[in-house]
Design a protein around this nucleic acid. Structure first.
Length: 502
DNA sequence: AAAAAAT
């Protein structure tokens, strides 16, 4: 078996790798590192979770040991589709480059130019960028690309999805053709192949199988639900509480607005929860992600910004609050769990209007997904009608919030049965039965969840106002569960605000 | 029926 020591990496790099606890390289690393060290171009076909990032970070560090950066002339350039991915790659350089004295600059949008400018001025060995911000700096005359020796294009297929290809082409033209190019993509559709043909010279092609196919390590279930958001939220809460093995989870929504709404709802129900989507300000995004990675937050409600690439080890559960519209996204989302051979669980709420998409998912993954508590044909009547979510939710929400610590889904469904209109015994029984078929979460976890609430920076910024929330917001419209939190002062996180936007 | 990214 190949060892890291056999790949030709420098001592400095090897010792950092050893310190990080790695001895055996992954297939993409074994395949890509030796030719990369020979200054060959690389065409890497690999998904996240395969060790792809280290497969370019490690050889780059070794190659960068010779030479020194000059002001405004970066020596290497890495292009990433999202800010989080770029930040993650930067972390890798910190980790594996701890024995080096290299200047790493992270050029991403949403944060101030000043520090980025300073790093460019000082001379950066490695520039890790999202395309927009890089071009912005370039147009301001803050950097020259003529000294770039290595260009990395990561997640090329996703760059294509996001319409970045013209930017990438423009950037590539500014870099000398004598450069070395490392090009990575999870898939190779024809457009990407064409792009690779244009950018790469006699590349070494390294292709690795998808990491353990989804079916192997991830338990997948569909969960029937009514389409109304408050019904889906109730189903989701029961589902979360029923998970004994839940360490942490990502909950995906299709829209940013729904991320914000669901976050608020779960937060008010006492869950330890954060939110992540692209309209949040960059600082909140970073803080949320860090808190989630550190375990300060157990649940992360996210848009597809978190579906691919983000390296969040050890996610025990993925919940799809919405069925993804593109089946491909389903694979990426549930790929957030069950990584590196660990087991994981994923649950997807499916409503009648989603069947087209759930069918497409089954077709794509080539298997039927089991239903948790019976399929859509067994779904009881919706619990609304004349009593819509408004009144019931308000009460439900407050009760839940107070008593979440010692209260499971049984109690919850009891409560429901006295608030849901009582004109159908059978219907109530079904509701109770469905709720009981999932077990309540351990109270220790709920306590933990409550403890965590105060630790979050968002809250901590203004805890004093919490007391006034209910009174101040008594008249606010709210279909879910009680008052809308205000009182963030000047520090209203962006994800709280977007609900009001289009 | 969407999200992501420069301001």
């Amino acid at each position: 078996m190949t060892n890291f020591a056999d790949l030709g990496l420098s001592q400095k790099v090897l010792s950092a790798v050893t310190d990080a606890g790695y001895t055996i390289p992954t297939p993409i690393q074994t395949g890509a590192i030796p030719p990369a060290l020979q200054r060959r171009d690389i065409l890497g076909i690999a998904q996240t979770g395969t060790g792809k990032t280290a497969s370019f970070v490690l050889p780059m560090l070794t190659l960068l040991e010779k030479g020194r950066a000059r002001a405004r002339m970066p020596r290497t350039l890495i292009l990433e589709p999202t800010r989080e991915l770029a930040a993650q790659v930067a972390e890798n350089f910190d980790k594996y480059g701890k024995n080096h004295k290299l200047n790493i600059a992270l050029l991403i949008g949403g944060v101030s130019f000043d520090e980025q400018d300073r790093k460019l001025e000082r001379g950066a060995d490695v520039l890790i960028c999202t395309p927009g911000r890089l071009l912005d700096h370039f147009e301001r005359g803050k950097l020259l690309m003529s000294g770039v020796e290595i260009l990395v294009i990561d997640e090329a297929d996703r760059m294509l999805d996001m319409g970045f290809i013209p930017d990438i082409e423009r950037i590539a033209k500014l870099i000398p053709f004598t450069r070395q190019t490392l090009f990575f993509s999870a898939t190779m559709p024809p457009e990407i192949q064409k792009l690779a043909d244009r950018f790469l010279q006699n590349p070494e092609r390294v292709e690795v199988a998808r990491p353990a196919s989804t079916a192997q390590t991830v338990t997948q279930r569909f969960v029937a639900a009514h389409a109304k958001d408050y019904e889906k939220r109730a189903v989701l809460r029961d589902l979360i509480r029923a998970q004994d093995e839940l360490k942490n989870a990502i909950i995906f929504c299709n829209r940013k607005k729904d991320v914000a709404d669901l976050f608020r709802s779960l937060d008010r129900h006492g869950f330890s929860v954060g939110a992540l989507h692209g309209d949040m300000d960059q600082r909140s995004r970073m803080t949320m992600l860090a808190n989630f990675k550190d375990g300060n937050i157990k649940l992360l409600v996210a848009s597809d910004v978190a579906a691919r690439g983000l390296d969040i080890p050890d996610v025990s559960h993925v919940f799809n609050f919405d069925v993804p519209i593109h089946a491909e996204d389903y694979v990426h989302r549930i790929g957030r769990t069950g990584r590196a051979g660990r087991s994981g669980a994923s649950f997807t709420l499916v409503t009648k209007r989603d069947t087209k998409f759930s069918d497409a998912i089954e077709k794509l993954i080539g298997q039927k997904v089991e239903w948790l508590n019976g399929d859509l044909s067994n779904l009881p009547e919706p619990m609304e009608s004349h009593d819509t979510g408004r009144r019931e939710r308000g009460r439900d929400g407050r009760k839940d919030r107070k008593k979440d610590g010692d209260r499971g889904s049984k109690a919850r469904s009891d409560h429901k049965s006295d608030t849901v209109r009582a004109d159908s015994e059978a219907e109530i029984e079904t509701v109770v039965e469905r709720a009981e078929s999932v077990k309540p979460a351990r109270s220790a976890e709920n306590k933990q969840a409550q403890n965590n609430r105060g630790d979050r920076p968002v809250r901590a910024s203004n805890p004093a106002n919490d007391d006034n929330r209910d009174r101040r917001n008594r008249h606010r419209r709210d279909y879910d569960d009680g008052p809308t939190p205000v009182g963030f002062g000047d520090e209203i996180p962006a994800f709280m605000l977007i609900a009001g936007k289009a």
